[in-house]
Amino acid sequence: MESKCDTQEKFKQLQKFIDSMEDRRGALIAVLHKAQHLYGYLSNDVIFYIAEKLEIPSAKVFGVISFYSYFTTEPRGKYVINVCLGTACFVRGADAIMREFEKILNIKAGETTEDKKFTLSGLRCIGACGLAPVVMVNDKVYGRVELNQVKTIIEEYQEEA
């Protein structure tokens, strides 16, 4: 759990970021990016804060968040597993890879494991089509992934903790 001190520190950073913007016209998406970067997700508290600070109705802020798939209002796991579902990966069997992850982690794409360790999600093309099919765990890229490698990839992160 995050300490209260931590949360306050992050609020301060967010405030500083907003205050430093020269032009607040159209700044909402940039602010949401910053907030999600700081907190990992967008909680109600954060959303209300942003709405007030930018003087935009919170309904509008929610509208923007729900429109863009990049933003999430749910906390995510420690490791976010992204299976690339772009066309190049798809024709080289990415959906079988996705099913294997779903089976082993026992969650569906878009969900997080109960222990909050893994979030599984699909992603549209990271541009490494030469390595298709591609899986990303946080920032690490795994290329030319085969079905029997899925288990090893998960184990790599199980052991770490």
């Binding site: 016209r25 159209g26 700044a27 909402l28 998406i29 940039a30 949401l32 990016h33 509208g63 923007v64 429109f67 863009y68 798939s69 990049y70 933003f71 549209r124």
Partner: peptide, 26 residues
Amino acid sequence: LRYGAGAFVCGEETALIHSVEGKRGE
């Protein structure tokens, strides 16, 4: 710079313009 946030439709110019303005990219 203006950042997209995962919406394919924002490649369409009018949608993109709304997104640049910080709105829903319709």
